[in-house]
Design a protein around this nucleic acid. Structure first.
Lengths: 336, 336
DNA sequence: ATTAAAATTTTACGCGAGTAAACTTTTATT
DNA sequence: AATAAAAGTTTACTCGCGTAAAATTTTAAT
């Protein structure tokens, strides 16, 4: 930087100021610097930069399971938003394991990011580790809420999701059973079940929840295996199944196919199957999956905005923890 | 570190040595340091560390499209291997766009990683940018080969992939048409087509390649839309379709379903459809997709090992660029 | 043209480690 | 026990930049 400052004819501290915020220097000097920049392609050393900055110009982004295209897609959205605001995203994948999640937080600690966006594993998260982290680093949770952890939460309005699709299924055919994992990794599943139960009651139908065994994040496999069992044991009380999420539904559809149950609306079909989330592949299942679409864009931008607001404030003036829930949109396809 | 060295009763340079390689200090001092570590939870500042190291203890990992679970899965494998070797992975997603790929390389430059593993976009990659980068940083390519770029390549033996599945399809039913994108993003597709043509010829069948329009990385969508068109125009010369990859096949299956074509083996079905890669979701399509399984583990570990070998050598003693191709395994499922 | 405000330059120090060199202590070898 | 080799300690310098303070110059306002 010393040498570069010399050739550009500007003092080093001013050049340093320029790289922190090009708008903070006079236009004439800015142009001189940028002119010199074209010829000498100097770039500040990020390690030296961050050594002296309390908080770096980077934002951590932790997702629980990147092989799930749902999270890959939301991570992609958030990454782009972070870049657009001039920060650098640090993407970390917890791979469905609590140890990895904790390691990721430890790793982020040493990166000293300005803030962090995290979609926690949920039930399997190490609550105390998360809590301790959030006290040190401005953190916004998304997708999966953990009560009173972090400085805010942005996610899906699961009650509305389940209500809307249950109402749709009921008025267009037989009322749905609810197919879910008994011990879901993700708290969204519980809210969805509760909302299913409540909506069924309000509509005057008897609810039937089918809670199947299975742990981990291989939801399709669980949906498939347990779907096979459910069909063999004839546990379905009606011809309509609402799966707790699209990935379970994808597995369930595979089980239906193997068992020779035709899925779809209309008298020629044996079953109707629906999911929730509008997984990127839900359009391409056979039949295409009826579901409730997450508002990816709204969740992503709201999470980023919430964090940026925090960053613009001092630690002392943080607002109260707010939970922002976004409604989903019913997407009628051929499966139900 | 000064303070921590004081409380542990060891000199700072020795503590520094310990953090660079715990095995490099005597066992007795190592234990004293680790004992002190438990009480004071000191951790070296990574920015200060990397400021003075020519190459950092991190490895860049660039993938072209993380929303594709195939890449997410291989990235997961590689990340774990990198961590196991004591390096820190820096995961970057090119999101199917050349600009992002170049930005990722620029970003990696400032991180000064010890080495980089990259699956390039392929045809859309900025060849000169990649080439320049590989001259500065030890880089191993995987999945998608670009001739003479990087210090090595690890990927699929596409000729064997196509040969094996074409032979299988031919001996178990009608010879396959080949369904592909006309301008595939990825060079693997070309090799697969060539191998299809050659194998068909060797077996004495007339090849039929159906090259459809479509750019970008939304392969399922292209497979679906163009599959619809292909069916409508009755372009299929036989009842068997080999798709250039599983994601195209997933879209094609959706088109078949919508058009009422039953897919699978046996006389009750109208079409057989197969893919290549063994995409994580290929098991759960309806019907489950017959395909050639990538050897994820072999590709991942071989890529990492190749890079680590480079890192253990000086720049002057780099071996000649080697291309390692791994065979795929034919996976017979119900679709063909 | 004065004057105040804003921007820039000079100077200097600090961040938290890596690392080299010379010296001292501990360990292993004979 | 003598000796060499290995490990550890002291000391001191370096990396590349952030940043504070005081002095100076430029710009804007009156």
């Amino acid at each position: 930087m010393e040498e570069f400052a010399a050739v550009s004819g500007i003092s080093r501290p001013t050049v340093s100021k320029y790289f922190n915020d090009p708008e903070s220097v006079r236009k004439s000097t800015r142009m001189r610097i940028e002119q010199a920049l074209e010829q000498h392609e100097y770039r500040p050393n990020i390690y030296a930069i961050n050594q002296n900055r309390r908080l770096t110009k980077s934002i951590g982004l932790v997702v629980p399971f990147l092989v799930d295209p749902f999270f890959a897609e939301i991570a992609r959205n958030i990454e782009n938003l972070i870049i657009a605001t001039g920060y650098r995203p640090i993407l970390l994948n917890s791979q469905g394991r609590s140890e990895h999640e904790v390691e990721n937080l430890e790793s982020l600690r040493s990166f000293r990011p300005a803030g962090v966006l995290i979609a926690p594993l949920g039930r399997e998260s190490d609550r105390s580790a998360l809590e301790a982290f959030c006290e040190d680093v401005p953190t916004v949770l998304f997708d999966s809420n953990i009560s009173n952890i972090g400085h805010g939460f942005v996610g899906a309005d699961n009650r509305q999701y389940a209500r809307d699709i249950v109402e749709y299924l009921c008025r267009s055919g037989e009322p749905p059973c609810f197919f879910e994992m008994r011990t879901p990794a993700n708290p969204n599943a519980n809210k969805r079940r509760q909302s299913y139960l409540q909506t069924m009651e309000e509509l005057g139908y008897e609810p039937h929840v089918i809670s199947v065994e299975g742990t981990g994040w291989a939801f399709e496999d669980i949906g498939y295996r347990q779907g096979m069992a459910v069909i063999e044991k004839r546990l379905l009380q009606t011809n309509t199944v609402l799966c707790s999420n699209d990935r379970l539904a994808i597995g369930f559809l595979a089980a239906c196919f193997e068992k020779g149950y035709r899925v779809g609306v209309g008298p020629q079909n044996a079953l109707r199957v629906a999911g929730m989330d509008d997984h990127p592949f839900a359009r391409f299942t056979c039949p295409p999956l009826t579901t409730v679409a997450q508002n990816y864009a709204a969740v992503s931008s709201s999470a980023v905005e919430t964090l940026l607001t925090l960053l613009s404030l001092g630690d002392s003036e943080y607002p109260a923890r707010r939970e922002q829930l976004f409604e989903g949109r019913l997407v009628k396809r051929m499966s139900a």
